[in-house]
Amino acid sequence: MSGLRILVPIKRVIDYAVKPRVNRAQTAVETANVKHSMNPFDELSIEEAVRLRERKVPVEEIVAFSAGPPKAQDVLRTAMAMGADRGIHVVVEESEQLEPLGVAKLLQQVVGQEKSNLVILGKQSIDDDANQTGQVLAGLLNWPQATQASKVTIEGDSVTVTREVDGGVETLRAKLPLIITTDLRLNEPRYASLPNIMKAKKKPLAKKTLKDYEGDFSARLKTLKVTEPPPRKGGVKVDDVDGMIGKLKELGAL
């Protein structure tokens, strides 16, 4: 086997530290003037790909891929600053959002064009929480899949993946080509260093549109309404122990 050709699909999402707000029309979450960053699970994917290379696993190329608005470029640059070799950006306007199936169909073609033999995806994106793209892609490609990886080791074309399951861990082994989706404890992503951020600016970034790919990417679902969860009721402060006992009695807890 000549080497790994890793494809890492990433998504630009609302920063996980930002509290999303529903827009006035209750059709979606407000995205204008909100801090965006790379989906945290995708950061883990990039980090893992780069670490594979650093562990002297023969990695031929790491390609970062994103389908999203023009600004998705920023997260691709971050991915390249972290160590991806080049990027592919399929520009999709906010109005024509892709669903997991659409993304998987796109990726299927990209895998063919790039001759990728390993795709590392985040297990889910934190905006729609679908947790589907990796699995659908495995189905379309008819490749084995190891989801929610917490450890990945590669020897030759044999890949061992540890995944965390309820009450323990499960260890899988499969041959390349393979789909891996990442989970929280896989690694700790690095900071993008300034020299690498500058180098990333010179790395190639291919710009495409959906027209460059075949197939139907239109949405199959319609969002009827988005609402915020009911606000939590505030507690009350009691002045002293007697007050607390009284309150507990009142609530029937004593």
């Binding site: 920063d15 996980y16 530290a17 260093s193 300034l194 951020i197």
Partner: peptide
């Protein structure tokens, strides 16, 4: 600014926070 201070070797190395958690 970052490019300038890197290129003129005022700073030897650095990182730029990519998200809110890194800022913290």
């Amino acid at each position: 600014f970052l490019e300038h201070v890197m290129e003129s070797e005022i700073v030897s190395d650095g990182v730029l926070a990519q998200d809110q958690t890194q800022i913290r």
